[in-house]
């Protein structure tokens, strides 16, 4: 598996994401936001957490219009895989690759804690290492993680089994407790919690490891 991790000014989880991909057996290329194309043969693009462009205008809005994001969109439209974590999820919604938007947390506070997540579906390369219904502990660290979409979109996401993870105790006001969603072809995942921060015993939890391992296993076969 060849993973590309995009680096924006203000990204701060790019190396963590790279380490998690590498630990699962991937070769990782770091790609600067001003590059206009992805390296040859990239299977999956990782869009990391952080505060790209200082969260100016709206979280992820400036990053979503950076040169590399045109290539990321083309990659996804060709059926390529993409994982956006935290700010990466915000970038994916701003590019339109995933529906909805992440609003300011309902309680207005930045929240940094480990939360219980329910795995809603095992039907994706990201979640097939879990069983649907499993509850896993993954850290969140965000100010704008309050998922919002209109009723029709929420119903479609639920009806098509595209909610990947939901919060056990909704920390941020997200509609339908949504913590992570899949694209229509189930190859793009955006999630606010940080699986890369629960991917090594030294992190204090390893519940995120199964995501990276399943991904590596599936993409090696591909």
């Amino acid at each position: 598996m060849h993973a590309a991790v995009i680096v924006f000014p203000g990204s701060n989880c790019d190396r963590d994401l790279a380490v998690a991909f590498e630990a699962a057996g991937a070769r990782v290329s770091m790609v600067w936001h001003k590059d206009s194309s992805l390296p040859q043969g990239v299977d999956i693009v990782g869009i990391p957490g952080g505060f790209s462009f200082g969260d100016y205008l709206r979280c992820g809005a400036i990053a979503a219009n950076s040169p590399i994001c045109r290539s990321v969109a083309a990659h996804a439209e060709r059926g390529g895989y993409a994982l956006g974590v935290c700010n990466g999820f915000q970038v994916l919604t701003e590019t339109g690759l995933l529906p909805g938007v992440l609003l300011r947390n309902a309680g207005l506070k930045y929240i940094c804690q480990t939360v219980g997540l329910k795995v809603e579906t095992s039907q994706s390369v990201y979640t097939e290492g879990y069983n649907a219904g499993d509850v896993i502990d993954i850290p969140i660290a965000h100010h704008d993680g309050n998922y919002f979409a209109d009723d029709e979109t929420i119903a479609r996401l639920q009806g098509e089994g595209r909610v990947a993870f939901s919060y056990m105790n909704n920390p941020n006001g997200a509609r339908a407790d949504i913590a992570g969603i899949l694209s229509e072809n189930r190859r793009v995942l955006g999630m606010m919690p940080h699986p890369e921060r629960a991917a090594d015993a030294g992190h204090g939890g390893t519940d995120g490891q199964a995501l990276f391992r399943a991904l590596a296993g599936a993409l090696v076969k591909a």
Partner: peptide, 9 residues
């Protein structure tokens, strides 16, 4: 439409 507003919200 392209940048200044997010018309979802």
């Amino acid at each position: 439409e392209k940048l200044l507003a997010n018309t979802v919200i």
